[in-house]
Nucleic acid binder design. Structure first.
Lengths: 342, 342
DNA sequence: CTGTTAGCGCGTTCAT
DNA sequence: ATGAACGCGCTAACAG
């Protein structure tokens, strides 16, 4: 495992110039003789020289690297569908902007052992994008106070060095529920995510707003808290329908829960939307493939990823301070909702 | 944006020892006085010192980083379901072993511009895991000849520095087709992936083996080549059934294609498995949620990821040479297959 | 325009 | 058991 290639010194020697000069042409400095530049460039080309980014990072004190930290990447099966698209957006944009992407997953337990700043300092990433994080994760608040720029996905917190990117979850939930209301439903259940998810709180707000807008009374017992997973959806409807048989429609905070619910209803011999109208949230790939196809609220996942990197880089390179970016959701009406019939 | 923390020098000063000594205790050297060690450790603790991994990488000429290069990460929608789980496995194991994971996506065009070795040398990763790569991607053969260790996912090539991890695709296809045969089907179509996918070639082999084993004649016109995507599945059955109405069962090289086919058949008023028995490949999450639930061949995706990292690290740290790791697939019988009825 | 000189933070001989 | 000195490959003043 020795040298994998020539160093800047080898190039300098071969070109008959100093190291500095080589460095200059490589870094687009203008004050270098065109002829020298050509000569150097030719040697670089011939030797197949590639600058050692580690050495450069050391001296520049910048790694051109962004860290993507995900909480419990593996465990949250629900997350996959959402995370992957965001990841793609992040990766694509980072690459475009000349940054490398380093992936980390943390768990709440790991977060107790290593502080966020230790974590970041050790890795020397220039900035961080965090996703899948809960409000009560230890890192959450460390991040906003950290001195290194960060962007949170789906957690609306900002500071001088911390921005966020999220869907407009309030609006998303509202249009979902308004859709149900417009179809005549008046007893609308809500299977939410866990309370430590910022999005869950926002979607609850959207739910109540929609009800209020239609003059329908909010009944807190119509709200069930799950964990975004399929099983939670099944349990959610089951619980809701048992206690409140008058419920004719349910809004779910994730497609996966909605799907779990549909499966459950079907397994009990029921039919969707005949027996219950259902709206999900996310528009994951499965949504359109379900039988019946799921009516849901689409999030711009890929764009969230891109936007996160854009925001991060603006803080990194232009010194901008933290801000929030909110992306619009979109109602996708498919087959799991139908007008209320007594 | 200057110092984010103390350097080894600060620690040395504060502890009243030399840099060397600090370095020694940090790197588990034994020849250091227990009392000095304690003193240093205490200072390290108190100052919250974190070694600068960049500096260490420079001097050690190792980055403790593995690169994950994926071909067309974003574009291959079919890949998501497969890639993500593998990614999780890779990430988890890399983290366990103390390596960071850097994510890259390449495209065939990008591969024409930058050679693989340039790519790797620039990033200074210690090793590479590649996935989603085609046999005709430029990188494919550069990788096996490269001087830095690598592991290919799903491409059975080895060299001194290159290993691979894959499912036993021949066996997987064989058990799928044997299942169909055992149900009495004799006219079995095969919607394969594109020919530049190693797995496609292998699955074809498994398909023909199974037929041969049952004394059923192989008809090359029963094989359709798609691109692993949903649409390809729909087109595949359509084409196959039109030309060969006698076909009573079809094996698909990906679940997504199988699902596309089911959707197509249903949209035409047909029924699965009554009108056509179907077996997929992968066992993605959708498979069990489909209506009817998809019979398929499960791949150990997460384990493939873990295994890839294990293999890579054995080459990296023990100097082992390239080898192949083949994981067993498993037939998951669900609802899309039924015995042949005249 | 170009070369010389200093480091960046750390691991590593080689003395002591 | 410990420290001084050197160098990893590169960028950035500072002369000329």
């Amino acid at each position: 495992m020795k040298h994998l290639g020539p160093t800047i010194r080898d190039v300098a020697k071969a070109a008959g110039v100093s190291i500095t000069t080589v460095s200059r042409v490589l870094n687009q400095y203008t004050d270098v003789n065109p002829k020298t530049r050509q000569k150097v460039l030719k040697v670089v080309e011939k030797m197949g020289y590639q600058p050692n980014s580690v050495a450069r990072s050391l001296v520049m004190n910048r790694t051109q690297t962004v860290g993507l930290v995900v909480s419990d990447l593996t465990k949250s099966r629900s997350g996959h569908h959402f995370l992957f698209d965001v990841l793609c957006g992040i990766n694509d944009r980072a690459q475009e902007m000349g940054y490398d992407l380093v992936l980390f997953s943390t768990s709440p337990t790991a977060q107790k052992k290593t502080t966020y700043m230790d974590f970041v300092r050790q890795r020397r990433v220039d900035g961080v994008v965090m996703m899948g994080i809960r409000l009560d994760d230890p890192y959450t608040h460390e991040v906003v106070e950290a001195s290194i720029p960060s962007v949170l996905i789906d957690v609306p917190l900002t500071s001088k060095t911390c921005s966020y990117v999220a869907s407009d979850n309030v609006a998303g939930a509202r249009i979902a529920v308004e859709h149900l209301l417009s179809q005549g439903h008046r007893h609308i259940g809500f299977v939410n995510g866990h309370q430590q998810a910022a999005v869950a709180q926002e979607r609850l707000a959207g739910y109540t707003q929609a009800l209020a807008g239609a003059g329908v009374k909010f009944i807190s017992d119509y709200v069930y808290y799950g964990n975004f997973e399929q099983e939670d959806g099944a349990q959610g409807v089951q619980s809701l329908k048992k206690k409140h048989p008058e419920i004719s429609a349910v809004f779910f905070a994730s497609d996966l829960m909605a799907i779990g619910a549909i499966k459950y209803i079907q397994s009990e011999g029921g039919q969707v939307p005949k027996d219950l109208s259902i709206v999900g949230f996310d528009d994951i790939a499965l949504a359109s493939l379900m039988q019946p196809a799921l009516t849901t609220v689409r999030q711009m996942r890929y764009e969230m990823g891109k936007s996160a990197v854009d925001t991060l880089i603006r803080m990194l390179e232009n010194g901008e301070t933290g801000r929030g970016v909110v992306l619009p959701p979109e109602l996708i009406v498919r087959e799991t909702t139908q007008p209320f019939t007594k």
